[in-house]
């Protein structure tokens, strides 16, 4: 069973995300900001990271770069709001595999995860 690290500063978003992913049969690890994400990544080496962009302490883009330094093969999906096109593009250049747009549509999230994991 694939393990997914969910990074978001909003407790609510993490809970929603966890519900969705657990319902799809994934294991979920959580982190509340970019710095925590790097620590969690090292500890639990997840198969995939769902990364929010705007977060305190360390933002999503920086976290993508840092995680890629730790593990160049890391698979990361950005969780973006509408209108963050430039930022998402930057994240993809930094090594993110894909993105999904909030509010989440379950089908799309699942499709993106399946695509990236295979």
């Amino acid at each position: 069973m694939a393990k997914i690290l969910v990074v978001d500063d909003s407790d609510f978003m993490r809970v929603r995300c966890r519900q969705l992913l657990v319902g799809e049969g994934y294991d979920v690890v959580e982190a509340g900001n970019g710095q925590e994400a790097i620590d969690r990544y090292k500890e639990s080496s997840p198969d995939l990271v769902m990364m929010d962009i705007t977060m305190p302490v360390m933002d999503g883009i920086t976290a993508v770069r840092e995680i890629k330094k730790v593990d160049p093969k890391a698979k990361i999906i950005m969780c973006s709001a509408l209108g963050q096109q430039a930022t998402v593009l930057e994240a993809v250049k930094a090594g993110a595999s894909d993105f999904v747009v909030k509010p989440f549509q379950a089908d799309r999230v699942v499709a993106a995860i399946q695509k990236v994991l295979c």
Binding site: S80, L82, Q84, Q85, V88, L89, V92, K93, D98, F99, V101
Partner: peptide, 13 residues
């Protein structure tokens, strides 16, 4: 497509 330039970049990659 919500962020076409990101998609275009992914295609480019």
């Amino acid at each position: 497509s919500i962020m076409p330039s990101v998609r275009a970049y992914q295609v480019y990659q």
